[in-house]
Design a protein around this nucleic acid. Structure first.
Lengths: 116, 116
DNA sequence: GACATGCTTCAATTATTGTTGAATAATCAT
DNA sequence: ATGATTATTCAACAATAATTGAAGCATGTC
């Protein structure tokens, strides 16, 4: 993945509204949600939602499809996994014993704190 | 993790400069790099680098430590893994058979395209 | 056809970020 | 102490992004 594209993807996740929107789409993958339902669930004004959805779609993290008079948005899960790989692939210069230690710490945190 | 914090973290990764900086720190984890070395490797003017490093540290994705007249920056790998978990944890409403299919697609892409 | 609905686009405004050069502070070497 | 090095902060400016209300365009209903 190119740095420019990855930065655009993170940009798409960098506001609370957009992060909420995207996480909702991830949750409702693979069917997705129509714009109005996103607006209702998150309480975002429609004109503002359009603006944010456009940024998310532009990054590639979601796709749109027309469905009668609705527009259905779907998270692009493979791209999400791709950008995660982009971020983590060179971790510790590929020395797996270092990375493994970090992951162990992280698992411990998860068990201690639970999910939110 | 709170949405606000996660958004701040993604914000810290949302410019090409900052993404390059952070990935460099991930690569050189756990020892980290001093500011001057980051500047040299990436060709970013020092005053501008300070600005971006501040944003990264503020997000929590890196820490700073004074080392003589140098400042050493280190990636916070557990937080990176934490924000990844935040993004992915509710995927497909916890229906693992859907998620598994996506991961299979992603593995296929990786094998086809190699690492970049 | 006339009207309601769902959503987007446009234009104007406000707010936030990024970049640059000059000035400052701390450390180290002589 | 003087001077060189490392890196930050500050202030000014340039560039981008977010929000809002009004207008527009399909689609569906009567």
């Amino acid at each position: 993945m190119e740095t420019k594209h990855a930065a655009t993807i993170f940009e798409a996740l960098s506001s609370e509204s957009r992060l909420d929107i995207f996480r909702l789409l991830v949750k409702y993958a693979p069917e997705g949600l129509v714009a109005g339902e996103i607006a209702r669930r998150l309480g975002i004004p429609s004109t503002n939602l359009s603006f944010h959805l456009k940024a998310i779609v532009h990054s590639g993290l979601a796709s749109v499809e027309k469905e009668g008079r609705y527009l259905r948005y779907r998270a692009n899960i493979p791209l999400m996994l791709g950008v995660i790989a982009y971020l983590t692939s060179e971790c510790c210069s590929g020395r797996p014993e270092e990375c493994a230690r970090y992951r162990a710490v992280n698992r411990h945190l998860k068990m201690t704190q639970g999910r939110h």
